[in-house]
Simulated scan of single mutants.
Amino acid sequence: MSSRAVIIDTDPGIDDAVAILAALASPEFDVLGITTVAGNIGIATTTRNAGRILALAGRGAVPVIAGAAGPLARKGFDVAEIHGNDGLGGVGFPEPSAPPRSGHAAIWLADTLMAQPAGSVDLLALGPLTNIAALLAGNPEAARRIGRIIAMGGAIREPGNIGPRSEFNLAADPEAAEAVLGAGLPLTLIPLDVTRRVRADRATVEHLRAAGTAASRASADLIAAYFQTTAGGESRPLHDPCVMLFAMAPQLFGCEAMALTVDCGQSRDAGSLAPADDGRPPVSVALTVEGGAALSLLTERLTRR
């Protein structure tokens, strides 16, 4: 199977960690690097966590490059009550086997995109879009060389998870999200409408644990931490793995083209999406998913030897 070159932009994060482990185990992806952004927790911790995830997967040669320490124009959120003070739900990970690269993620992104054939590198965005907005502002020529962006974020017909209509990643930096959605780049958005349909049950956790791979055992513990903060027989939504699942198996998703704008106000709806009337090109928005098949694919990749 041929691999697609990808860069993962992320703020790990429990579900980010599961998504990254799945990507590292999947033959579809040649992971060129991981860029980090503040989101679920501060930049020092998200950067360390990216290195810890790579160390567990035995992929310490993949570079980690720290990016934005906060939103473009506002204060960030603190969601330690969901992800734990370490961002990984207290699950044991080794320390990074290599330090992060020097320099800023947006500059590394630009240099990498300019060095690769135009259109050959995809960007898998799991957190606030601050680094991508910085790339657009600093080097729009490099940004236009992105093959496609697949980004977890937003809510279309679903209520929000951080405000009445706003989803965390876009609400964490609405100005960055507005810049990226309005830039005309090839973008697929994976909103709450999809991610809330992909959840693990306790049997899935036990299957992952029994498989005995480093990725499956860690993912079992990570998802189990999601059960500790929710009631019932299903985990919290596995938001970020849906980005990797879409990249691997787009046939499991149903998409619509939508021109969207982002609320950049100061209300609780900051970061929410609305139809755009400024003539901007549409983006592709995933609105349906075969949840059972998506979860099966995720567990298959996490248990892969």
Results as ranks from 00 to 15, higher is better:
Gly90Asp: 03
Ala218Gln: 03
Pro117Lys: 09
Gly13Met: 05
Thr46Met: 11
Asn161Val: 01
Ala133Thr: 01
Ser296Lys: 13
His207Gln: 14
Gly103Arg: 13
Gly87Leu: 11
Tyr226Arg: 14
Leu185Glu: 02
Gly33His: 09
Asp86Ile: 12
Ala17Gly: 00
Gly51Met: 10
Lys75Arg: 14
Thr204Ala: 15
Ala133Cys: 12
Thr229Met: 04
Asp15Thr: 15
Asp277Thr: 14
Pro281Met: 11
Ala214Val: 08
Ser3Gly: 12
Leu245Ile: 15
Asn85Pro: 05
Gly127Ala: 15
Ile150Asp: 10
Gly119Pro: 09
Ile53Tyr: 11
Ala276Glu: 02
Pro99Lys: 04
Thr10Ser: 15
Thr112Trp: 10
Leu245Ala: 10
Val121Trp: 06
Ile132Val: 15
Ala203Trp: 01
Leu124Val: 04
Ser219Cys: 08
Arg148Tyr: 05
Glu175Asn: 09
Ala155Phe: 01
Ile156Arg: 08
Leu302Ile: 01
Pro71Gly: 10
Thr195Met: 03
Arg217Met: 11
Ala293His: 05
Ala257His: 15
Gly76Ala: 11
Cys264Gln: 13
Thr112Arg: 15
Leu123Asn: 07
Ser235Gln: 07
Pro27Tyr: 03
Asn85Leu: 14
Leu298Met: 11
His83Ser: 03
Pro27Trp: 10
Ser296Ile: 00
Leu32Glu: 12
Ile149Glu: 01
Ile162Trp: 04
Thr188Gly: 02
Ala38Lys: 09
Ala134Asn: 12
Gly147Lys: 05
His239Ser: 04
Arg101Asp: 03
Ala98Asp: 00
Leu189Gln: 08
Gly291Asn: 06
Pro174Met: 03
Leu273Ile: 02
Leu260Phe: 09
Gly184Asn: 03
Gly271Cys: 10
Leu21Pro: 06
Gly67Ala: 02
Leu72Asp: 13
Ile8Asp: 07
Leu302Ser: 12
Ala214Leu: 05
Ala171Phe: 00
Ala73Phe: 08
Thr213Asn: 08
Ser166Phe: 04
Ala25Leu: 04
Pro100Trp: 14
Asp193Trp: 05
Pro281Ala: 14
Ala203Asn: 15
Gly154Tyr: 07
Gly232Asn: 02
Leu245Ser: 12
Ala210Asp: 15
Leu187Trp: 04
Glu95Leu: 06
Pro63Gly: 01
Met248Asn: 00
Gly42Met: 02
Glu234Trp: 09
Thr195Asp: 12
Arg48Asp: 00
Ala55Met: 07
Arg4Lys: 13
Asp193Cys: 01
Val205Tyr: 01
Cys242Met: 08
Gly153Tyr: 07
Phe227Tyr: 08
Gly138Tyr: 00
Ala105Asn: 14
Met244Arg: 06
Arg148Lys: 13
Ser97Gln: 10
Glu206Trp: 06
Pro186Met: 03
Gly138His: 05
Ser267Pro: 10
Thr288Tyr: 08
Ile149Asn: 08
Ile8Trp: 08
Gly147Tyr: 00
Ser216Asn: 10
Arg217Tyr: 06
Leu129Val: 08
Arg157Ser: 12
Ile14Ala: 00
Ile149Trp: 04
Thr45Pro: 07
Arg268Cys: 00
Thr229Arg: 15
Leu113Asp: 11
Pro117Thr: 02
Val289Tyr: 01
Glu28Pro: 00
Gly265Trp: 05
Ala249Val: 06
Arg48Gly: 02
Tyr226Thr: 13
Asn85His: 14
Asp9Glu: 13
Leu113Lys: 04
Phe246Asp: 12
Gly154Cys: 10
Leu126Glu: 10
Thr288Cys: 07
